[in-house]
């Protein structure tokens, strides 16, 4: 245990920089995924036939294939089409596209749960469909989605580890390098596990805070009332 502690302290600077990359990938992925997921959900719920089908195709494609395959396709596959992306860009794009497909599903569920009544009431005072979506439906749907959606940043955070297979210098990649340098895989992966745990804990706390902040007065559990 003492030796693990020494090991941990010794490689902490190295691991911390990997942790920075992991956090960056997670944040970018969640953000890009949110924008993509929101667009896909709106297209699917309120768009015409073409946009609806496009959104469905995107969601099914990225939820139906492993993240690693998507990463490899972007990094090793795209150059075949004349598009060469850096490791970081491939990772970021794959994570964003993948997360977007999942986030779309969370958002769709809560939009459906809001029900048609709110849209009806909004239209009845003369709002256009899109005004109703932005001023009435989304403010409620986003709140409603938070408890389920809050799993996404955590799950994406853990999923970022697969990009070590294209050698993006994130936490796993650093651990692998340290392991091969020190011949001590147990200590290095244990150190990484500890750091992931800390990250997950922090992200979880941030999500709880968000949930509290957006809660509506009088509704103790937003998702239980209609």
């Amino acid at each position: 245990m003492i030796s693990f502690f020494e090991f941990f302290v010794r490689f902490l600077p190295d691991l911390l920089s990997g942790m920075g990359m992991t956090l960056l990938l997670t944040a970018e992925g969640v953000l890009a995924g949110f924008i993509l997921g929101l667009a896909a959900t709106l297209a699917r719920t309120y768009g015409g036939k073409f946009w609806r089908n496009l959104a469905i195709a995107y969601i099914e494609l990225f939820r139906g294939t492993p993240l690693l395959v998507q990463v490899f396709l972007l990094y090793y596959g795209l150059p075949g089409l004349g598009i060469t992306l850096s490791r970081e860009w491939s990772a970021f794009l794959a994570l964003g596209l993948n997360s977007g497909a999942y986030q779309a599903e969370y958002l769709r569920g809560s939009i459906l749960a809001i029900g048609e009544g709110q849209m009806l009431a909004a239209r009845a005072i003369g709002m256009s469909k899109w005004k109703a979506v932005f001023y009435i439906i989304l403010p409620q749907a986003l709140r409603l989605a938070i408890p389920a959606w809050a799993n996404e940043p955590v799950s994406l955070l853990k999923a970022t580890s697969v990009v070590f297979l294209i050698a993006v210098p994130e936490l796993m990649t650093r651990a692998k390098l340290i392991a091969s340098r020190t011949y001590d895989p147990i200590s290095s992966y244990l150190a990484v596990a500890v750091l992931y745990l800390v990250l997950v804990y922090l992200v979880d706390a941030a999500m709880k805070w968000l949930e509290q902040r957006t809660r509506l007065p009088g509704l103790s559990a937003v998702n239980e009332s209609s």
Binding site: G117, Q118, A121, A124, I125, G126, I136, Q140, R143, S225
Partner: peptide
Amino acid sequence: QVRQKIGMVFQNFLLFNH
């Protein structure tokens, strides 16, 4: 435009909950 000039009140109120 027309709906602005015709008010409607529903059985289940349908207030904007947020």
